[in-house]
Every structure is written in structure tokens, then in C-alpha cells.
Simulated scan of single mutants.
Amino acid sequence: MTVAVVDMFSAEAEMAFVETLRRTGFAVLRNPPLDAARMEKMARDWRDFFLGEDKWNYLAEETPSGNTSGFIPPDVSETAVGHDRKDLKEFFHIVPETILPARLADDAAAHLDEARKLGKLLLGWLDIHCGNALPADLRGQLAESLSPSDSLLRILHYPPLTGDEQPGAVRAAAHEDINLITLLPVSAEPGLQVMARDGQWMDVPGRPGDVIVNSGDMLQEASSRQLPSTSHRVINPPDAHSNLSRISMPYFIAPDLDIRLSKHHTAGSYLKERLDLLAR
């Protein structure tokens, strides 16, 4: 299994994107319409934020939509389904109306605007080429179903390793995303891997400025598994690089929660079921 790199300047970009998502659940977009210089600056600025003490003034709160907004420290970070150790990470959730430090707010807002537009474009490509695989409520409507209030920009910080980590703990244990699609700018530090169909792990290709796109569980449910939600993880760095932190900025694109994904689920009921499972 190979995750394809799709040049968005290519006349074949649309079909190449849909095909690699069908085969692998992942695609890498080259020359995406996102400001690469801004993304590099955001990575530097957010690394400084996480390494400072100001983050404790922005502890997360639940929003009316059920999302969390703000800083989530390592001691309350996630434990992936099927694992018994917390991931080695901390993160900040950004949704509409999130209060951000002034020095970070403008870049985050501009990046979110570009990411939403890119997400809508990609969902539109899936509308055209995968419409027959979708239920009536979503057929031809994926792009219009994008919900800014239910979608989420997560700024992740994987801190340097100290040697005191719990044995077996990793930066992000194997998991699948819950949402429709995820847009993930390629990090300057490696570590992201995807599981191939034979169960082997492989590095996801790409270079800074590229954007990784993957299908989430909601899209897999809506497409009767024609667009797979593939397991992925972030492994710990080798000892020579263990003193380096890693910044990741996934944008989890979700639909309106009353949209019907299948005869079994609306997006809202599917989300609740998955969150209940994570909370166990």
C-alpha cells in the first residue's frame, strides 16, 4: 500500500485524490492552497506557547456544541481506544469563539479560513466521484454539510522525551479519526505512520508545506466502507532526537450533527457512541 502524493496543480489532481483515499484512506496534497510560511510561523509560535506558563490561563472548557475549547494538559490527555497508557502529548482546541492569546489569534483565524475552504473543495470532489456510495441525506451534499461549529482545529504538542515516560507510552497510539476528513499540515518532525492492509506500519510521505488528508470514521460509515478510515499513529523519536518536541495541527472536519450517515446513525449519534467508548 502506498499513500500517493497528489500535486494540486495537476489536471489529474481530483481523480488522483479520490483514488488514493479509496485505496488507503490517506492522501498527501502538494501545493495546497494554504499559506506555507504562515504554517511554519504557527508551529514556531505554538511551540513557544506550550513551553511557557501562559497556557495554564487557557484551560479547556466545554462548548455548547459539545466540543472542548482551550488547553488540555498531558495529565488529562487522551488514551486511545484499546490502549491503557495516555498519549505523550498536550494540545489546544480551537473552535469558533475560542479565546486565544493575542499573538496567536490572527494566524489561527487565517489558517482556519483557508482550511475550511480546502476542506469544502475536497468534500466537493468526493460529492462528484463518490456520491452513489452515500446515503440520500449526503448524496451530493458533503461539501455543504461542513459544520464550522462541530469541526475542530487541534494544535498538538508532543514534548521532548525525558526518559521517565511510562513503559510502552507513545506520542499517539494507533487510532482512527471520528470525523469526515482530517487536514494535517506535514510536521517538520517525522513520526506519523499509517497501517497498511497487511498490518505493517509505514511512514506517511510528505514535506513541510504539504497537507495530509485522511478519511475518518464518519466518512467510512457514510460510504459503506468504500472510503476507509485507516489506523495511524505517531511514534516516539529515536534517542538522537528525543530532545526535540513536535507540533502538529490537524483540522478535524465534521458535518452538521443531524445529517444521516447511514440507516444506523446520524453524525450526532455516531459521535456520541464513539465519545462514550473513549470515556470508558
Rank of each mutant, 00 (worst) to 15 (best):
S245F: 09
S151P: 03
L153V: 04
Y158I: 14
D258A: 09
G140E: 08
L184S: 05
P159N: 04
P185M: 06
R154N: 05
P208M: 02
V186A: 03
I212D: 12
T162V: 07
P238D: 00
M202T: 11
R233F: 05
L156Q: 12
D203P: 04
P159D: 09
S231V: 09
D137W: 01
M249Y: 09
Q193S: 01
P255G: 10
Q166R: 08
R260G: 05
V211S: 11
P159T: 05
G199S: 01
S147E: 04
G206L: 12
L142W: 04
A188K: 10
A172E: 08
G206T: 11
V186S: 06
I247N: 14
T162I: 06
V234L: 07
G209P: 03
P185D: 06
L138I: 06
W201D: 07
G206H: 10
L126I: 15
D203N: 14
V213Y: 07
D137T: 08
P190R: 10
P205R: 10
H241W: 11
L184R: 07
I235D: 00
Q141K: 15
A133N: 07
L161F: 03
R154D: 02
W201V: 10
G191W: 00
E165Q: 02
N132I: 02
I212K: 13
R154C: 09
A173M: 00
N214I: 04
E189Q: 14
A172C: 13
S245M: 12
L192A: 03
N132S: 13
C130H: 00
G131Y: 03
R246P: 15
V213H: 07
L156M: 13
N243C: 10
Q220N: 06
L183A: 07
E189Y: 02
P255R: 11
